[in-house]
């Protein structure tokens, strides 16, 4: 069987398209590369959707934490504390069991115990809390002069937020936010390793990597392949966020624009 055929058979296996049975003997390097790559579809799905949806909640949380209204402030603070203060791994387990018990009383929660929705919700809330804290820090650092200039132009309320505060906040938060994105994608590898079960062997990259490690009894091939994929993914994220950074700073003089400084805040 040539590698092209393997690609056709297993390229979309993680979505349930193609060959139904996973390879069970005579494992080739090609099969491992293709299937683990196929699993990356799920990592990208979880990461991208959680990041996009989390972005909006994060903005709301940041504004809430900076708000004068004590109710909004306390709610945001607690939200950030709970999701940043506990391990994602435990959150996955706990969320799965909570969804299970909700499901038994309300049929509405039926799809929530599947990873595609349940784990996505956990990742969404998790990244919203981390990014919310980053945005909050940036919000406090918005230069006073910018706001005074906005006042001078007669901008108020929502317009002032949308045109002045928010873009500046993003610009300041961007390097840290890039890091958050990288770690979020890494965190997607935990989905099928915690509470959420795998259905019909449609798993993420780590699921297939451990499948091969189990079948070939040799962990030294599949895990480095997995690592390679994630390094590629990390580089892609850095690239895309770098482009966004250029756009955010396009009004600045050429010399000050510079490259995205990733060294600022390297861990979550």
């Amino acid at each position: 069987m040539s590698c092209w055929e393997t690609l056709a058979d297993y390229g979309l296996r993680s979505l349930g398209i193609g060959e139904r049975l996973l390879p069970r003997s005579d494992f080739t390097l090609c099969q491992q590369v293709v299937l683990i790559g196929s699993g990356m579809i799920w990592n990208i799905y979880f990461g991208t959707l959680a990041l996009l949806s989390g972005f909006f909640l994060a903005t709301a949380v940041a504004v809430g934490k900076a708000a004068r209204n004590p109710f909004a402030r306390k709610a945001s603070e607690w939200f950030i504390l709970i999701f940043r203060g506990s391990p994602l791994f435990i959150q996955f387990f706990f969320a799965y069991f909570v969804f299970l018990s909700l499901k038994s009383s309300y049929p509405f929660f039926d799809p929530f115990t599947s990873a595609w929705l349940g784990a996505l919700i956990v990742l969404f809330l998790n990244t919203a809390a981390y990014s919310g804290e980053i945005f909050y820090g940036a919000l406090l650092s918005v230069p006073k002069g910018d706001l005074e200039a906005a006042d001078a132009y007669g901008l108020t309320g929502w317009t002032r937020f949308r045109r002045i505060t928010w873009p500046t906040m993003l610009r300041l938060a961007w390097p840290a936010y890039t890091n958050e994105a990288i770690f979020l994608f890494h965190a997607t590898a935990l989905v099928f390793f915690s509470g959420f079960p795998t259905r019909q062997q449609k798993g993420d990259a780590l699921y297939y990597a451990s499948y091969f490690a189990d079948k070939t009894f040799n962990p030294f091939v599949p895990y480095p392949i997995l690592a390679g994929y994630f390094i590629l993914l990390t580089l892609t994220i850095i690239g895309i966020f770098g482009l966004a950074n250029r756009r955010l700073n396009r009004h600045l003089p050429q010399a000050r624009r510079g490259r995205l400084k990733l060294r600022m805040n390297l861990i979550r």
């Binding site: 990597a209 962990p219 895990y223």
Partner: peptide, 18 residues
């Protein structure tokens, strides 16, 4: 760079035996 680019769980799964 390498440790940072790869999810920690991937290391944990085969580092011990390695």
């Amino acid at each position: 760079a390498i440790v940072r680019g790869v999810p920690d769980i991937a290391f944990f799964l085969f580092f011990v035996i390695a």
